[in-house]
Write a protein that binds this DNA or RNA. Structure first.
Lengths: 205, 205
DNA sequence: CCGCTAACCTAGTGATCGTTAGGTTAAGCG
DNA sequence: CGCTTAACCTAACGATCACTAGGTTAGCGG
């Protein structure tokens, strides 16, 4: 009759290292659900099974915590994208495989997707952190475009914008349509984006 | 030695109607620059040449003002997109013309672009307002896709997501690269997106 | 079993901001 | 020229929230 309504199970003391990890995970969830500005420290602390001041024993500020969340998520995402990249197959296969790995990661980390692509903030520092994190991740796309494009740098930039935005949009759309199987997303992305890349592939490759 | 640093010229009384318009325009700017949460009512009022309480003589709340800003901007955008749509030319020409009109509008309303595509907010009501406004606008894209696509509804949805996200991303990218001429944006969008549409055009059209 | 460290707590503080109360004055109309 | 209205003001309220001060206790090392 008196169970807690939220997830904060038996309430034990924890080593600093473990507590830190719990906080980062809770913060990822809350940032994803409510955005940076909408995520109160108290709520993150509560879901981590502690009170707010304890959070400040582990992180110097909300912004620092956010940066850590972004770094962790983008590291995971980049790793997923790059895993299938070293093989010697033709470009289309590599692109398809990378798309599949990318969406597989999105599927695995469903709840954190809005953190990566949609977190809303008016805070200058948090905005900058997002821009930095996004730039690092976007550079993973470059091989598919720069290896292939010979004409113009601006065209490259715009094509990267289009590809990145499309993947972002599909991931968020998937978030609202969880029943759709991954292969549908991969096929849609491949169908829509590959022609734009293919038309630029020099006959050599 | 004592000129105002910001734009709030000679400070006269104004008719309610005119003041309302001034407020909407100031609000558009401030929302675009700082997001919904980051835009203080005081700042919007100051740029409108009044104090904050006067704003509440014209709008019942910050949210209502935001909704009005969104409605006005999306109405303009939709109008720009639809103007060139009734002609009987082939689909590719119509698509190209619509893209050009769309980017022309973006160029004309530079400062308001982030309001349409990037405003950050943790406020539930403002989020909902954005979703509603976006949905209305996105439906303008449908004719290019549904007229053309025969196979599957989910594919249609995903293609619309991709097109809308690409245009949004290009508009925001343009915002950071204002020296690039419009035709470059139009060509980039056409090159990248048309193949995905063309591949689905039934031989009849 | 005892003491010390570090994991944890309650109770603020100060800043920001949406919104309201209540009054002042400009300007159109008779 | 006065009078009324509505455009405008200053001042403050109350809520939220990041962050801090200062104390309490669990649990491990000796």
């Amino acid at each position: 009759m008196s169970r807690e309504p939220e997830a904060a199970p038996p309430k034990r003391r924890m080593s600093a290292e473990k507590r830190r990890a719990v906080i980062v995970e809770s913060a990822t969830e809350v940032f994803a659900e409510r955005g940076y500005d909408g995520a109160p420290i108290d709520e993150i602390a509560r879901r981590s099974g502690i009170s707010a001041p304890v959070l400040y024993d582990h992180f110097p500020s909300k912004l620092a915590l956010f940066q850590e969340v972004l770094a962790a998520e983008y590291a995971r995402l980049r790793a997923a994208w790059e895993v299938t990249f070293a093989t010697g197959e033709p470009l289309r296969q590599r692109f398809a495989a990378s798309l599949d790995a990318w969406f597989a990661h999105v599927e695995r980390r469903r709840k954190s997707i809005p953190v990566l692509f949609q977190v809303a903030t008016a805070d200058e520092g948090a905005r900058q952190a997002q821009v930095d994190a996004t730039r690092a991740s976007r550079s993973a796309l470059a091989p598919f475009v720069t290896d292939v494009l010979t004409t113009d740098e601006l065209d490259t930039e715009m094509l990267i914008e289009i590809i990145a935005a499309s993947l972002r949009a599909l991931a968020l759309w998937w978030h609202d349509h969880p029943a759709v199987p991954r292969v549908r997303l991969v096929d849609a992305a491949l169908d829509a984006l590959w022609p734009a890349i293919e038309r630029r592939v020099p006959p050599s490759s």
